[in-house]
């Protein structure tokens, strides 16, 4: 029975149990990464007798960590900024003209594209992108921005419908152009949605595996997940080094999450229920 005055022991017990399941793989990863192969052979889950921090710098060197990190950051940063700036604009134009046939169809066109599975685009896309010399990081950024349109327009339009038109109309009477209205009034008004779109784009670009896998040929441009995949063989039987590199690949996102978790959770929720 729901009782607002007493804590619910059943719920707490359940959540603690669930927390154990979430944390266990992480705990194991940390334990494995801190041991040397001999001790790992004896015990996987126990606390290390001696901590081998050296696994981390070794893994960093083996996986070209700083390089991959820079690539991931470069791709994610540009994907997020360009997505917010361009997709919001497209959505604005559509939202304010939904009564016109062209914009309405445009909206449905973008929406329908959401259901096209990536595998069908994958094979021809790779050839097309390399043909125009864009099978690289820059091409990847363009794809994130362009493919993001489908979902983001949907999210932005939902939000823009709730933004009253009066402000724009007043500005229009004052002689402001559409561009100035958008950048001066509407874009700042969409702040919360921009945050949502930005967070989702960041999570996508940072963690994505399949698109970089098929697009990037030059190992200098590999992102963190792709580097993990490409260098799986490198660790051979040295699991400690492998896990050190796994943890380092996850760490940037975990730090960002710990700092900005409230934003991220709100952002993701907003994006999905709008």
């Amino acid at each position: 029975m729901r009782n607002r005055n007493h804590r619910n022991p059943l719920a707490i017990g359940f959540l603690v149990l669930g927390a154990f399941f979430i944390l266990f793989p992480m705990y194991m990863a940390i334990m494995v990464s801190l041991k040397n192969p001999q001790e790992l052979g004896q015990s996987i889950l126990g606390w290390p007798r001696r901590i081998f921090w050296s696994n981390f710098p070794q893994a960093m060197a083996a996986t070209h960590y700083t390089h991959a990190f820079e690539n991931s950051l470069f791709i994610t940063a540009f994907a997020v900024i360009l997505t917010i700036l361009t997709n919001s604009m497209v959505a604005y134009a559509i939202a304010r003209n939904m009564h016109r046939r062209f914009f309405k169809y445009l909206y449905y066109y973008f929406f329908a594209a959401m259901f096209v599975p990536f595998p069908i685009i994958m094979l021809p896309l790779v050839r097309q992108m390399s043909h125009i010399g864009l099978a690289d990081r820059v091409g990847l950024i363009i794809l994130y921005v362009v493919y993001g349109i489908s979902f983001n327009v949907f999210v932005y339009v939902g939000y823009l419908r709730s933004v009253p038109m009066e402000l724009e109309e007043a500005a229009l009477v004052d002689g402001a152009g559409r561009w100035r209205i958008f950048w001066g009034i509407i874009f700042p008004l969409m702040g919360p949605m921009n945050a949502t779109v930005g967070i989702l784009a960041a999570l996508w670009a940072w963690n994505d595996f399949l698109l970089p896998l098929v697009m990037l040929g030059n190992p200098n441009q590999f992102t963190l997940p792709l580097m993990q995949y490409a260098l799986q063989g490198q660790y051979s039987t040295n699991y400690s080094e492998a896990f050190a590199s796994y943890l380092m690949a996850l760490l940037p996102m975990i730090i960002v999450y710990v700092v900005a978790q409230k934003w991220i959770i709100n952002g993701v929720t907003q994006g999905s229920i709008k």
């Binding site: 669930g18 944390l23 999570l203 940072w206 963690n207 993990q228 492998a242 996850l250």
Partner: peptide
């Protein structure tokens, strides 16, 4: 609890699967 339960969402699926 809320933060903890949402954490797996922000992690790379590939790396999580390797673990």
């Amino acid at each position: 609890f809320k933060a903890l339960y949402f954490m797996p969402y922000v992690l790379s699926t590939l790396v999580v699967s390797y673990i």
